[in-house]
Nucleic acid binder design. Sequence first.
DNA 1: TATGAATGAGAGTTCATTCAT
DNA 2: CATGAATGAACTCTCATTCAT
Lengths: 196, 196, 196, 196
Amino acid sequence: MTAQPTPDGRRPANRGPRAAAGNREALVAAAREIFAAHGLDAPLSAIARRAGVGQGVLYRHFPDRDAVAAAVLEENVREVEQAAAARGATPDGVLGVLTWHLAQSAAFIGLLHADGASGRFAAHAYARELSERVERALRGCLPDGHRLADPDDLMLAVAMVSGAVTGPTREGREHRALAAWRLIGVTVGPVRPFGG
Amino acid sequence: MTAQPTPDGRRPANRGPRAAAGNREALVAAAREIFAAHGLDAPLSAIARRAGVGQGVLYRHFPDRDAVAAAVLEENVREVEQAAAARGATPDGVLGVLTWHLAQSAAFIGLLHADGASGRFAAHAYARELSERVERALRGCLPDGHRLADPDDLMLAVAMVSGAVTGPTREGREHRALAAWRLIGVTVGPVRPFGG
Amino acid sequence: MTAQPTPDGRRPANRGPRAAAGNREALVAAAREIFAAHGLDAPLSAIARRAGVGQGVLYRHFPDRDAVAAAVLEENVREVEQAAAARGATPDGVLGVLTWHLAQSAAFIGLLHADGASGRFAAHAYARELSERVERALRGCLPDGHRLADPDDLMLAVAMVSGAVTGPTREGREHRALAAWRLIGVTVGPVRPFGG
Amino acid sequence: MTAQPTPDGRRPANRGPRAAAGNREALVAAAREIFAAHGLDAPLSAIARRAGVGQGVLYRHFPDRDAVAAAVLEENVREVEQAAAARGATPDGVLGVLTWHLAQSAAFIGLLHADGASGRFAAHAYARELSERVERALRGCLPDGHRLADPDDLMLAVAMVSGAVTGPTREGREHRALAAWRLIGVTVGPVRPFGG
DNA sequence: TATGAATGAGAGTTCATTCAT
DNA sequence: CATGAATGAACTCTCATTCAT
């Protein structure tokens, strides 16, 4: 409780404040992988370990699990927005980017589904905000009279496609995502990350 | 819920082998409620407590968490099958029963989504089998040429509707489920349990 | 998060429910020693270890640190009450028993001092109740016109003597306690546990 | 409290060696407040933050928690000494200053109680020295034949009054302190800081 | 057979301390 | 000389699982 003498006298290098930015990025990347692989309940310690940092660093950057998840989601959403804002953006193309992210990670799916029912996510409000950003990004691209012109329908469609995205392999998830869009009657462009 | 409440401070009488079946039912019912309320990660001890039995009884009936979850799912699926097998079953009606279960519990949704990626369910094979039973039950009811005549499309549609079902309230989930079916172009009958 | 397979296949004997009562006693005794030696902030894990039980057992018997401390205090207070209720109890004798407990353990002192200022003890109300029990026990013994006939003065005196009781050795603490009573002008009988 | 608030997002200018003394003062003042508010176990980081300096500065000035606490205590003792050394000092007046400090902060009380038994303070020797300084300061003021003429009795009395000082409010603590002095038969002057 | 206490691994979280900048 | 991020040990608490009764 009181003193914490250095265990054996050795202490792994303190890489200094310079490492902060890099650490944050590494944590988000690690979180994306760990969440994708083991679900949103994966131990935070696993994320810290994968990122190659101490647990304290994770807690310095993110106060809780929600914040970690939100950071991952934020990145995904930002890519969709960028795809939508890019010159020459087409509905098909943006949906392709979105679909790539949907197929990419379980975390993305789980967070869009975050419904508070599990009592786990207080980040509900944030998830909603992100949903709206996705919706806005897409809306700007859709031609008038598009099947999903109604914003509610658009987000519902995204949720539905998310629901369809299951299975252990990337390819399988991608295939199911495309089949889902087809069932809704929506055409999707090439499935790939923005700039990928 | 079924079993004996602890009388006062005395150990409740061992009711002998006759109670086994009742205990199992009580456990499944308790699991359904607990899973719905607290998610699939709820403590098993909570289920046993709610069922009014000791933890040992839970382990006697189910080797692990997956088995408990599977038993809950099994009941849901059986109801859908019964609805489909009933005289005068219509596609609309069966879909209504299915939709009722989808909207009913987060657990059902989570289980249909069980994809093994989350590392949580070894019961993947069993979940697949159940999916197929749902599909078969529905298939038998659909008229030729129905939009979802393709079995794959049918199951995909179920998954998609599951994905749409989020939110804390029963009413909201039901509403979203119906909107999802509509987006796929499928008509659904009254949303209610079989025999309800 | 999910499964906790037995580490190596071996598991120390589960001594069964019979051990419950003994465990509780062992925990209280261990807590008394640990608290006395390391203060009220000592790790609960140390108490469990000293009692020879797993951490879970400690939490089964006591929901939190306060409950452990309260159990220790309860025992002390009970002894004082017994001393006061015994046939032929004299003020001097009861004060001797009380003094013995004061000199005995840092925990007793700390708990009587519990003032909530440290934010650590929600058990404030319980501590107050115990204080009153001590006061009642003593009051019953004091002859009319005794210097401490006023209940407030009585408890104040106890607090003051507690404050005087410092130092690493039992003997030193006892000596200081007696000096403190003397300074207040109170005569104390032999310092020993009730029945000791 | 003294040092610079971080301007906006920029690292505050290194104010050079001149700031050292000011920082020390700020740290002691911050420690007094934090200890009083959250007890002697408050995080050191909180003290540094309250002082408006980095954690490194705290470690530059104080090797460990004990040193910080000792510095706070030192200030208190110095004030008592000053009060005793002032022209026209009376026993009553000095005791009033002492009592003010006792009622002022939980930290002061805790430190006077520091008995090493809690394992928290290696600063035992230093605390003893401070005790003696308080005793010397008071002794010089007491008229011959005073009830507390014996140095041991004097320090015992201080400890006893400290023990009586509990409760969440300043007023309550002050009231109890005065009652305690009264019980010992000592008259105390106005309770206030030296020069206050 | 049912009960529920015991067990301990490990997850989450906090903080003392170091040290690159 | 000051900053504050990094580090990881230690602590609290939970819960899956076993097993004496």
